[in-house]
Simulated scan of single mutants.
Amino acid sequence: MTYPTLAVRVISLTNSTARRDAVRENLQGFDLPWAFHDASRPGDDDALPDDPEGQARLFGRRLTPGERACYMSHVHALDTFEADPTLDWLLVMEDDVWIDTAFPYDALAATLDDHGIGYLRLFAREYRRALPRFRFGERQILYLVSDPYGSQGYLISRDAAARFRSRLTAIRRPIDDELGRFWENGLDNHVLFPFPLIERHMPSTLNSARDDAQIGGPVRNLTRLRTRLGDYVAKRAYLAARRAPFARDRIRARKR
């Protein structure tokens, strides 16, 4: 069987020596082509303009420099994907994860093509209710009804990446929030379970900076509340249209 062409890009800062050594040890003997994608840093020239007012209005606060750099790291990785016509799929992972190198990701991509799915999370940070769609071996493809957050690892097809990238015109949210807006971006919220990729336990400077970020005042909080209500209505309307056909063809639990 001929599988789609697939490559792996690991987003990592050039001076993250310990993390890169751990990635090299993990990916030793991986049968897929992989390479580091040098992560952006705060202050680098960005392909997208920063929109602090839009961040405050839509997200409730201005993004930290690290969040903006993380956003652009993923955008640049998708740009390099678009620039390489030999690839059908890209597996994007950050450098603070461990991935199962024995798993058949190219065969998984072929199955996703057959089901018309162009984006699949390989990890989720938070539990969300889900509809089981179909099986891949002993694992399940689940359709999540809400954003589980995190951009640690995902598979994305060429068409899905192009559609997603075309709607990004400015930095207004963290990249994981942007990826999770399935009712707007068409990246339906599928995840592979059990996960073939897990987050390593290590300190996160990005999360600590988020905790220290200043939240907007009463006026901005009211604007944010209106935005959240609009998102809630739009998301529920989208799910209402999708859940009926998904419910009809979903798989049932196996009896052991």
Rank of each mutant, 00 (worst) to 15 (best):
F195D: 07
D212T: 10
L32I: 15
R158G: 03
D106F: 09
V145G: 08
R250Y: 08
F30L: 14
R135N: 13
R236Q: 15
R68K: 15
Y127L: 02
V233C: 02
Y154T: 04
P33M: 12
Y127N: 05
G60R: 07
T5V: 13
P245T: 10
A107M: 07
F123V: 03
L6M: 07
R41W: 07
R167A: 13
A110N: 12
N221T: 10
S204M: 04
P42G: 13
T80W: 06
G217N: 14
S151C: 15
N185M: 02
R226Y: 10
V23K: 00
L32F: 15
D106M: 00
T80Y: 01
C70E: 04
Y3A: 12
T223L: 13
A7T: 12
L87E: 06
L155N: 09
T111I: 03
P203Y: 10
A130W: 00
R125M: 08
G153E: 11
P194R: 03
D176L: 04
V23C: 06
P52E: 04
E184K: 02
V191S: 01
D88E: 13
Y3T: 14
D113I: 06
D113Y: 03
R181N: 00
L87V: 03
E82C: 12
Q55P: 08
H201D: 15
R181S: 04
R41P: 02
I117Y: 04
D100K: 05
R128F: 04
R172C: 10
L120M: 11
E53W: 00
D84V: 02
K235R: 15
R158A: 03
R172T: 15
I251Y: 02
A83N: 10
P148F: 08
P148H: 12
F182Y: 14
R62H: 11
D176H: 02
F30Y: 14
Q140R: 14
W34C: 12
D95S: 05
R172Q: 15
L179V: 10
R228S: 01
F103C: 01
S16C: 09
M72R: 10
F246N: 08
L32K: 10
D31W: 01
D177H: 12
H201K: 11
H74K: 05
P218F: 01
D46Q: 05
A161T: 06
E199I: 02
S73V: 04
G153F: 09
F136W: 00
V97T: 08
F30A: 14
L155K: 10
L112G: 01
R62C: 12
R224S: 01
V8L: 14
T205K: 05
P196L: 03
A69N: 09
M202G: 10
R220S: 05
P245A: 11
D21A: 15
G216K: 11
D114K: 10
R252M: 05
H74E: 06
Y143F: 15
R200C: 13
G186Y: 01
E82V: 12
R242Y: 08
L32P: 07
W89A: 08
G60W: 00
D96N: 09
